[in-house]
């Protein structure tokens, strides 16, 4: 009886997997047809891409380096400023957005929807939108990064806040502590490691995103890359890309180190 059941479960599981794979294959083929994609095109594309990468882009024009320092620094500054301000704002909002700490369920749902909007409209769209009213430059770049940082961090913070130990909160509540006392004295200490962890992760994302933001007018290295592409100055482009690469890798390395030290 039991063995039979087990076998039936196994069979349905296998069938489910098979069905899933078939659907996936159909979807993939549908996508390939829709995008005029063929294995040949893939092969050719990779070939062309590689040729462009290694012939047109190489070697990077190192003499451009001094001129790229300022945009590179701007990229870092924008990412960092957006991360810090975003963390502070998202920190406050997430307290109201997490089921465990929210004073009212309506506030919770409202803030979640609000942050979902910030998060799910891609950063490049925010930049295009903001450029129309704020003009080109670093202000727009910082603001766009700030908006998506808040969107992402509210969600991540709130999820962490929902996993905190309610016992510690209960204990402080029983001493007669008020709402804000509980938030700062019981919630914050527990929340600190994930707050820092998510913020560092957000910094990494900002550094990547800031290049994208730059392409549509937000300043920094992205702008250099975009204009270089348009002017066919590929050797300068590759120098800028190389810098992006360095900044991203260094940021990742440093955030990992900090994370290990404090969590």
């Amino acid at each position: 009886m039991k063995g039979e059941q087990l076998q039936r479960v196994r069979r349905t599981k296998r069938n489910q997997l098979l069905l899933f794979l078939i659907i996936l294959a159909v979807l993939t083929i549908w996508s390939a047809v829709g995008t005029d994609f063929t294995p040949g095109a893939l092969w050719g594309g990779i070939g062309d891409g590689a040729r462009f990468l290694f012939v047109d882009l190489m070697p990077p024009n190192v003499s451009e380096f001094p001129g790229l320092i300022q945009p590179a620094l701007d990229t870092i500054y924008m990412s960092f400023v957006a991360m810090v301000i975003g963390s502070v704002i998202a920190g406050l909002l997430s307290i109201f957005a997490a089921a465990t700490t929210s004073p009212h369920p309506a506030l919770q749902i409202g803030l979640r929807a609000f942050s979902a909007m910030f998060r799910n409209i891609p950063v490049i769209i925010w930049t295009i939108l903001l450029v129309a009213s704020f003009g080109l430059g670093k202000l727009v770049g910082t603001l766009s990064l700030l908006i998506v940082s808040i969107g992402m961090l509210v969600r991540c913070y709130a999820e962490s806040l929902e996993e905190i130990d309610m016992g510690q909160i209960e204990a402080l509540r029983s001493t007669g502590a008020s709402y804000w006392q509980i938030i700062t004295q019981a919630v914050l200490p527990q929340f600190m490691p994930s707050l820092v962890g998510w913020s560092l992760y957000n910094l990494e994302i900002n550094v990547r995103a800031s290049t994208i933001v730059g392409m549509v007018g937000g300043g920094g290295l992205g702008f250099t890359i975009q204009s270089g592409m348009k002017l066919f100055q590929y050797k300068e482009v590759s120098m800028a890309v190389l810098l992006v690469l360095c900044i991203v890798l260094v940021t990742e390395f440093m955030t990992n180190r900090i994370r290990e030290r404090i969590i």
Partner: peptide, 14 residues
């Protein structure tokens, strides 16, 4: 009214 808990419920990180 003081309260004492089975799981101690101390704020662990402070």
């Amino acid at each position: 009214m003081g309260m004492i808990f089975q799981g101690f419920n101390l704020v662990e990180r402070v």
